[in-house]
């Protein structure tokens, strides 16, 4: 991923020990493995990033567990044996809701939905933002002008007003919510990617590749994209945090999918049922705390990765 040539010039001894007797592809893979190992070694030193990673792994385990958990306990139409609106106890560690369902089960089920929406929406946002940013930065001229005006428009769109209008017009299934969050959050990524492309495309190895007859597609996919991957990845992690927050706000306004309840939907139900006046704090706080912890975990990991990827920040 560095600017060093794939095969060292014959006059100097090979600076890279893995180069000897390997095909270019093997050399590339060996370098990628080493870069990853180096990244992990740096990340492990970062306390904030590691704390975030541990929190995140706990919630991922929770989400995986929820796939196999017994769904019957979440169905209010099946008579639930639990007491209604009971506070935390040994049997119900996070209390119960108005229909006697354990809040712990609601939160475990919600972890899968919230994480799924966050990850998928961030993925859509990343693909949109990277494609548009790269296209604008690489092509330049009129293409750049047009794409950047559209990006600016999306950047200033008051996102919640835009999102509720879209959800009200287009419907509020889980996939529609994912699509809406993806479509409203790509602009920042596009600007970042464009700025990076502008600096990368002037480097000499791009010029060299072009002189050897490489097509635009080859240059972008083999030389520009790999160079941007670390920055894009760190940015995507931060986008996941924003996507989870966005989903919770939409769900709180009643725009969640009633058939797959995220943490936001649980908060909405509790709030609408008057949990505040009923003093049923556990019903509100359990899902809220989950949102805060997961968003915090992604933010911490994102900040840590930014520090490693972006040497300008590291120097501080």
């Amino acid at each position: 991923m560095k600017t060093e040539p794939i095969v060292a010039p014959p006059t100097t001894p090979p600076s890279d020990p893995v180069v000897k007797g390997l095909t270019p592809r093997q050399v590339k893979h060996a370098r990628q493995r080493r870069a990853l190992a180096r990244f992990w070694a740096q990340f492990r030193q970062n306390r904030m990033g590691m704390v975030g990673l541990v929190i995140l792994l706990i919630f991922i385990a929770m989400a995986i567990f929820s796939i196999f958990a017994d769904k019957g306990r979440l169905d209010p139409t099946i008579a639930t044996s639990g007491p209604r609106l009971a506070g935390p106890s040994m049997q119900y560690p996070l209390g119960t809701n108005r229909t006697g369902i354990s809040v712990l089960s609601l939160v475990v089920e919600g972890s899968r939905i919230s994480l799924f929406v966050g990850l998928t929406a961030a993925l859509i946002s990343m693909i949109l933002g990277t494609t548009i940013g790269m296209w604008a930065g690489y092509k330049g001229a009129v293409t750049d002008g047009v794409l950047m005006r559209v990006t600016d428009a999306f950047l200033v769109l008051p996102w919640l007003a835009f999102a509720i209008v879209m959800a009200a017009v287009l419907g509020q299934s889980l996939w529609m919510i994912i699509f809406i969050i993806g479509v409203t959050s790509w602009a920042g990524t596009a600007r970042l990617v464009r700025a990076q492309v502008l600096s990368v495309k002037e480097r000499t190895y791009i010029e060299r590749s072009r002189a050897l007859g490489a097509s635009d597609f080859h240059v972008v996919s083999k030389h520009v994209t790999p160079n941007l991957m670390p920055v894009i990845f760190a940015n995507t992690i931060l986008t996941i945090a924003i996507a989870i927050l966005s989903e919770s706000a939409l769900a709180f306004l009643g725009l969640g999918d009633p058939t797959s309840k995220s943490w936001g939907t649980v908060i909405d139900e509790a709030f609408s049922a008057g949990a505040l006046t009923l003093h049923a704090w556990w019903w509100l706080l359990a899902p809220s705390l989950c949102i805060v912890l997961v968003v915090l975990a992604f933010t911490m990991i994102g900040f840590a990765m930014d520090e490693i990827v972006n040497p300008r920040i590291r120097e501080r």
Partner: peptide
């Protein structure tokens, strides 16, 4: 923490 917390929470 404040950044990670939705306004309504």
């Amino acid at each position: 923490v404040l950044y990670a917390m939705p306004e309504f929470v």
